[in-house]
Every structure is written in C-alpha cells, then in structure tokens.
Computed example of a mutant assay.
Amino acid sequence: MSNNLYRFVGLEQSEFSLHQDLSETYFAMRELCLPEAMLVLSDGIDDVLSLLSESQYYVAQDLVSYKGKTITFRGQFAMAESKSLKAFLQHAAATDDLRPMLISPVFGSSTPLQVIAVTEDVCCLYSTTGKCAAPSQV
C-alpha cells in the first residue's frame, strides 16, 4: 500500500458548496449502481480514463458502515477536474493502490446520469441514459 490512505492524496481538489450534503451526493451515486443500469464492465483503468470526458467529477471512496438497517457513508469525498482525476487514477493503478470508489460527472439534480464504479479488480459504467457519455464506446 502506498500513501493514498483513502484521502485522495495527490488528487487536486476543487471546493464544495458549504450547503452540499456529501453523504446525500454519495448515496445518489450509489443508487445508480444497479445491474440493470450497467453498460460496460472492464478490467482496465484505461477504459475508465476514456470515459472521463466531462470537466469536473465527484469522486467518493466506496466505504459505508451498517448499524441495523441504517447505512452510513464513511469514505472520503472529493470534487476534481478531469485532468487531475485522470492523473490520480493512472498513478493509483501504476502503484497498485486503486481503491474502491464511485466517480460521477458533477450533477446539479438529485440523480447523476452516469456513475463509474471502480474496484481493485473491475470497473463498471452505470448510466440512466443507456449510453456512454464519452465519444468512444468502450
């Protein structure tokens, strides 16, 4: 393990609105990650990089805790420019420090149109529109 420590060290981050509920944003992203919304399953980070065509992204460590029926978001959350996110993901993959996370273009509504779920083994693209946002379909 390197010094990522689930804090997105090395990811140049943008500022959040003081009124933004990060837990609510995370769960909106997580809600889209259903089998029927999955478009692409990939085992390579290069495929994920090709999907990052928007200018800003939410990045959330996929870490929750359970207490009874209550699920609580426990991970780190960041907002980053596409260029910085791509560099961060490339470095994390190259150093074998890719952690489970959810990535979504910044969204203003209550539901994102697209979420990329990254794990140590595979990456999945989920979409409400039924198509990839990037010009090249993976």
Rank of each mutant, 00 (worst) to 15 (best):
R74M: 15
F88M: 05
A87G: 08
D121K: 12
A92P: 06
R99D: 08
Q90P: 04
V64T: 15
Q90K: 15
L98W: 03
A92Q: 14
Y58L: 03
C123R: 07
G68V: 10
G68D: 05
F77V: 10
A60Y: 06
S65M: 10
K86H: 02
D62L: 04
F107S: 04
Y58F: 15
Y57G: 05
A92I: 05
D62P: 02
A94P: 00
G68H: 13
V59M: 00
T95S: 15
L89F: 12
Q90D: 10
A87T: 08
S65A: 11
F77S: 14
A78P: 00
V118S: 00
G75I: 11
M101E: 03
A117K: 14
T72G: 06
M79P: 12
Q90E: 15
S82N: 11
T111F: 08
T128H: 13
T129Y: 05
D96N: 13
K86M: 13
D62F: 04
V106S: 09
D121A: 09
K131W: 11
A87I: 09
L113S: 12
K69Q: 14
G108W: 07
V106T: 11
C123W: 01
I71D: 02
S127T: 10
P105L: 05
C132E: 15
A133W: 12
A93T: 12
K67M: 13
A117G: 12
Y57M: 09
F73N: 08
Q76I: 02
A133S: 13
F77K: 10
G75V: 12
K67I: 08
S65Y: 10
A60T: 07
F88Q: 08
S110T: 11
A93D: 14
D97I: 05
T95M: 11
T95W: 03
D121H: 13
F77Y: 15
M101W: 02
V115W: 01
C124I: 00
G130M: 12
S110C: 05
Y126C: 08
Q90R: 13
G130N: 04
A94C: 03
L85E: 05
G108F: 09
Y66A: 07
Q76A: 15
Y126D: 09
T70N: 12
I103R: 01
F73I: 08
A117F: 07
P112I: 06
S104C: 00
G108A: 05
T111W: 05
S104H: 01
E81C: 01
L125Q: 14
G68L: 07
S109L: 03
I103T: 03
Q61T: 06
G108N: 09
Y126V: 04
Q90S: 12
V115P: 03
T95G: 01
V59I: 13
D121I: 09
A133F: 06
A93P: 00
F73G: 01
T129P: 02
F88W: 15
I116W: 00
S109T: 11
S104K: 01
A133V: 10
T72M: 13
